[in-house]
């Protein structure tokens, strides 16, 4: 069972209290975007074995969206952080680097 700590209310919520929101840090392409860029935004997703960034919502709780960094292979959670950011904060990246040296994901590493 996946247990994530909600960064807003601090509760260790198990999977059944959360709603999954898919991949994190997707840049939205809109009016004026090239077809290739729009296709990338609309359809292309990371599918890593290892470090992954996801959006989750504390649905049966405080109701807020947040981000989580975890490993898809071991289900290890590296950390959760607030939704008001375009990229993972330094402490999350450091926590991942400590356990998975040389990781990379999308444009982050």
């Amino acid at each position: 069972m996946l247990i994530l700590t909600c960064p807003y209310c601090g509760i260790d919520a198990d999977e059944t209290e959360l709603a999954a929101g898919g991949q994190a840090h997707i840049k939205r392409e809109t009016v004026g975007a090239s077809d290739d860029a729009f296709e990338e935004y609309m359809f292309m997703r990371e599918n890593p074995k290892g470090v992954h960034f996801e959006r989750w919502r504390h649905a049966n709780g405080c109701g807020k969206w947040f981000h989580a960094a975890r490993c898809t292979m071991t289900l290890e959670v590296f950390g959760t952080y607030e939704a008001q950011t375009y990229e993972p904060p330094a402490e999350i990246r450091a926590a991942i680097s400590a356990k998975r040296p040389g990781w990379s994901w999308g444009s982050f590493s």
Binding site: I11, E17, N60, G61
Partner: peptide, 10 residues
Amino acid sequence: LRRTRIAQAP
């Protein structure tokens, strides 16, 4: 106060 679910109900 804990917001959670009771079985399937918020």
